[in-house]
Design a protein around this nucleic acid. Structure first.
Lengths: 178, 178
DNA sequence: TTGCAATACATCGGCACCGATGTATTGTCT
DNA sequence: AGACAATACATCGGTGCCGATGTATTGCAA
């Protein structure tokens, strides 16, 4: 999730770590804050993997800035991660949102549609948080008001997202000329 | 999140690790699968902390079962974690849902209401995933269809959850005689 | 002028998580 | 008879995450 965000933001333009941190905080910070002690090692990892290069730029701020630029390998890697997301990227809303935030970088509407389709398939599978044996329970069958809330909210989210997915898939298919 | 689920399930009745795993998988497994190699160390941790006790029960299955029971300290700890959740439990939907799944164990409707109120406050804060300077952008202002989707879906979820929160808070206050 | 917040980076130790792998038994399908 | 899934636990190495802490500068407010 973190690495995807780093690659995603740098795909647009080179940034230094601190600026990157502010952008990631704005994107997902209200849900799950990003610690500096997580970001800087992540940058180092990506650098060691040849996905980004750093150029030290003195002046302007306090400590010398390290401006980070994606290498061609880094650009390819972002596109790969967007086109072939792990199952967790599809099922976990937090990670899915991060992926969505950068999906435009995939350019090919067919590839974008394929990713949305995976999320649609996931949301279409009949799953619940609560079961009676193997049978998923509906909200109406759950007496506990808090567990009922989980199902009520999840259903509303699912409905809204499915509608959006279908709408967006239609316009992507139109764009691709299908 | 994992520890909370363990404590939550055992609050109802003693279970062995394997059964615990199945219940946790049913609860959150479709979002984020739980690995055995994460569960067993977590059980050990809680045991070492004096929150649960294990009783070896031979027979029945394959390997001898370790039936896990919450100690009084474990029961108190669950109530404490439910009553005083960390900020991440409030902001992260996955963790919030886990908390909701066991909030009934808190019994006192006033304490339950206080927790729901924290979530309501969080959802009421004007935040976005995208900003222009400091100003949060509305869905209508975001051209990228995927980022627009994030805001559209988040708004629908938020609306549904706020309605549920207000409804449930009202009935909790009624139950508490406020 | 003293102090604090913001800018900008970095390290370290502890710990949680996970995939891989191992052990052993029961039940079922072929 | 043999294969395989399910039951039931456990360990180990690698790695990512995080809080605490450190360094150094700029700029604003008390």
């Amino acid at each position: 999730m973190l690495e995807l965000a780093v690659l995603g933001f740098l795909y647009d333009l080179p940034l230094h770590g601190y600026e990157l941190r502010k952008r990631i905080s704005a994107l997902t910070g209200h849900i799950k804050p990003v610690a500096e002690s997580t970001l800087y090692p992540a940058i180092k990892r990506l650098e060691k993997g040849g996905l980004l290069a750093r150029e030290t730029q003195p002046g302007s701020g306090a400590a010398p800035r390290h401006v980070l630029t994606l290498t061609p390998a880094g650009r390819a890697e972002l596109r790969r991660r967007l086109a072939e997301p792990a199952e967790g990227e599809i099922s976990d809303e937090n990670r899915w949102f991060t992926l969505l935030a950068f999906l435009r970088h995939l350019e090919d509407p067919r590839a974008q549609a394929a990713v949305l389709q995976r999320r649609l398939d996931f949301l279409s599978r009949p799953t619940s948080f609560f079961y009676e044996g193997d049978r998923p329970l509906r909200a109406e069958e759950v007496e506990d008001p808090f567990r009922n809330g989980i199902l009520t909210i999840a259903r509303a989210t699912s409905r809204a997202e499915l509608a959006w997915l279908r709408r967006t898939l239609a316009s992507l298919h139109a764009a691709a000329g299908d």
